[in-house]
Design a protein around this nucleic acid. Structure first.
Lengths: 233, 233
DNA sequence: GTAGCACGAATAATCGATTATTTTGCCGAG
DNA sequence: CTCGGCAAAATAATCGATTATTCGTGCTAC
């Protein structure tokens, strides 16, 4: 029986490798919190669920491990990584360390095209409601994506793809860690902070932009662990 | 017949997954320059060479892609990534951007145990000859490893595993890019620079340490592209 | 009553073979 | 002589099944 049933959604999903699709779906599911930290990601279940063979699920899982979205326990399969507060703090500090100089470079180097994209990204973010009625608990996918796009666009002016890859990696890890660190909602003044960031960037004021970013990230971190500043041990 | 008696060395080499071993071997081979950039990494060849099935080679390759040590061309297999001068410059800039603040943190936070490890790492590096007679063209594996260990140890005082992972990733990419960017040998004064780095770190002088690191990395970059400072478009 | 072991079920890791896609070589039309 | 298409070979992607390891259970010895 040569029944090559292409999965195909209504939107003509086109031709992609199966492992790519499975990887994307699994990644989205993990980021959406469909699997709790520590939960085992069983290849058999996933394979049956998605109607593919073990090999493609395995490949997707290996990729996820590389992205930090899954842990591998030798001879014991895969699992959703557990996130401690400690890890969340490290993530925030790392983002500050990397993004602050990136933003400075960006502001110094970005051209008019970059300015235009920053404006566009901020507009999209400002006009996207953070919460969708049906999704309730967590902020909407649309807002999360607009948020990511704004922050990334701000940094893209630096023109360094290695640093931008680093940003992508840390952003993803942050999104997952944030979801499971008790702190999920965008805090009250984030819209203000984003406006300040945009303004400083378009004014070509590196110091002001850096300061705004540091404040933005610090507030995000502080909202989670109010008394974190005291050194541990 | 229970034939699987893996004797294992006296040091109890233990049981590792096949894919792990294959991944390690392939990774080492690529970093050693056994495959030229652009060369296809054919699963069949590799599988026959190493006497394993396609699945394990495939898994190893997927992992390598995640580490940036291989490219994936959809439906066209895997290949060794090509490195342009541009990429090498980006890598160097990224390392500067990330490692300089890391080193400052490290110097500020590192404890006595860290100081001891820095001393030990520098001693090993200083006592390891950069060139081994039999390896000729390129610097010795032992030196490369001592070099990496010294730089990493310097930064480990920062205590941030996310940043250290970023360092690892960039270091690996740098090693591969350097090999194929025409610039291979450690330059004349690297021993001096390492000594200065160690001294500044143990003196707990963040500014001096950062300055020494910046000089070290800048020289490395400059040695490759002498006239690179002029911004490209 | 509990510790330890044997056995069986579950699941991970690997394999050999099948299917789909791309590349290569050849032939004829223009 | 070159361009375009067709067939054959090569190779990538996927699958179904096999082997190895771990996990759970119940029995036995003490």
């Amino acid at each position: 029986m040569a029944v090559t049933q292409t999965v195909g959604g209504p939107a003509a999903a086109g031709k992609q490798m199966l492992s790519e699709q499975v990887h994307a779906r699994l990644r989205a599911a993990i980021l959406h919190g469909a699997h709790a930290p520590g939960d085992a990601l069983k290849p058999q279940e996933l394979a049956k669920e998605q109607g593919v063979s073990l090999a493609v699920v395995r490949e997707a899982l290996v990729r996820l491990v590389g992205e930090g979205l899954a842990d591998r326990l030798p001879n014991r399969g895969f699992a959703v990584p557990a996130f401690s507060d400690r890890r969340w703090q490290e993530l925030t500090e790392a983002r500050l360390t990397v993004e602050e100089p990136m933003l400075r470079m960006s502001v110094q180097r970005g051209d008019v095209e970059w300015e235009a994209r920053v404006r566009a990204a901020h507009h999209r973010l400002a006009r996207t409601p953070a919460f969708a009625p049906e999704e309730g608990e967590y902020y909407s996918d649309a807002w999360a994506e607009a948020h990511r796009a704004f922050h990334r666009t701000l940094l893209e002016g630096c023109g360094n793809s290695v640093l931008l890859d680093t940003f992508d990696r840390m952003w993803t890890a942050s999104e997952l860690a944030r979801r499971w660190s008790g702190h999920s909602t965008p805090h009250r003044s984030s819209a203000d902070e984003h406006r300040r960031l945009e303004e400083a960037a378009l004014t070509r004021d590196p110091a002001a932009a850096a300061a705004a970013l540091v404040r933005h990230l610090s507030l995000t971190a502080a909202a989670l662990s109010p008394e974190s500043a005291t050194g541990t041990s």
